[in-house]
Simulated assay, not measured.
Amino acid sequence: MDPTDPVAILAGLIRCPSVTPREGGALAFLGALLSREGFEVARPVFEEAGSEPVENLFARSGGEGPHLVFAGHTDVVPPGDLGDWSRDPFAAEIVDGEMIGRGAVDMKGGIAAFVAAHGRYVRKNGAQKGRVSFLITGDEEGPAVNGTVKLLDWAKTRGERFDACLVGEPTNPDALGDMIKIGRRGSLSAEVRITGRQGHVAYPHLADNPVRAAVAIADALLASPLDEGTETFQPSNLEITAIETGNASVNVIPARCSIFFNVRFNDTWSVETLKAELAARVERGAAADRLRPGRAPASCELLWRERPSAAFSTRPGALTEALVAAVEETTGRRPQLSTSGGTSDARFIKDHCPVIEFGLVGRTMHMSNERVALSELQGLTDIYEAFIARWFAAHA
């Protein structure tokens, strides 16, 4: 296989059914390819109680000097109903100039483009004056417990120090060159469990309806904006995603009710200050007597869910400047520097070095018939090659 051909590399990756947490052959394929290119390849596996073991890959090439790392993931979401696909999601068929397959955009295409870009750079310029590494996980689409966060610590204990990182997530909304992610909003999820007393709806004085308290608590959570946004971030946003009682009977007052919500927040807040604000809102809602006149405050418990992530942004500097210039040189577009969207593994990497994200157009990610135009894949490869050259030139 030509290591400078992103189309061939992407086809090889897509044909590996690496649905989280299965490796599916994708890391083996990538490791073999990088080994032939002179990279030292390691394949650490991480696990912990209550989670699946996950295979990861760390590959490095070069010697002393500035260290640029490319990060990403080979795991993909399930394809869903195969009847919704026009082609086998793991066949990498090309139709009308587009490659169809799960992971084509998110984010095997980014990996293929960077591997090919580095191969082209080395063949034109010789080995870079420093080090290039690949930090690739199989756990980004899953719980993100045994992937990048542990792989970073593993690399650090072995003396690896990174000067900058590019994550190849699909960042462009409409066209290649639209957007570079220079940060991400934080994410915090929670459940409010409200305890009442079950009873017959015709005798409410003998029961205590937790749904009435849930309405008051939900109102308190949503009553006022968390903030108005900052120079770098849009306003923080709280969404209630479910209110559940587990009660299917229309003539029974339920014994309990749960409110589930998620907040995507900006750098106005830390995880701890946001938790304090939300706890105060829940307490105010529980104490409200508008819907529960004469009752004591509702009994409720606030439970924090999943692993929260803090908002972060990367300051302008050599990393951002090199990528912006590479995008402009290749596409003629001046990319927007954005912190929009969901979370990514960049939230772990930012504790180790400056990190930004740039990849393919994300319009079909996680969809049936996920696909990438071959011209776009080649364009991303050209951008990455120009970026590598500019970044190392800035650190010469």
Rank of each mutant, 00 (worst) to 15 (best):
R184C: 09
V77L: 09
Q128C: 13
E306V: 15
V95Y: 06
G294K: 07
T230V: 08
A117N: 07
P204N: 10
I180M: 06
R390Y: 02
P254I: 06
V361Y: 00
R333W: 02
P3W: 04
A127Q: 14
N146I: 07
S375T: 14
D84T: 14
C16H: 02
P225F: 03
F162T: 03
E52D: 14
V122W: 01
V327E: 02
C353T: 13
L152F: 07
E40D: 14
D219S: 13
R212N: 15
V327L: 05
N251I: 10
C300F: 02
T381W: 01
R315H: 14
V7I: 09
M365G: 05
T20I: 13
S224D: 14
M1C: 15
K181P: 04
G342K: 11
V115Q: 00
P6Q: 06
D345W: 01
D178E: 06
F261I: 06
N247M: 15
K156F: 10
Y384K: 04
T364P: 07
S133Y: 01
G168Y: 00
L30N: 01
T331Y: 07
T245D: 09
E52G: 12
T343C: 12
P308H: 03
S86G: 12
V361E: 00
D382T: 07
I349E: 02
T273C: 10
R120H: 05
E239H: 13
A216F: 06
L152G: 03
A389F: 05
M365C: 08
I383H: 01
A26W: 00
A286T: 03
A346E: 03
E98A: 11
T195K: 13
N237E: 14
G362Y: 00
S299Y: 04
C300V: 05
V355R: 00
L13P: 02
V115P: 01
L319S: 11
I100G: 02
G359A: 10
G317C: 12
G362V: 00
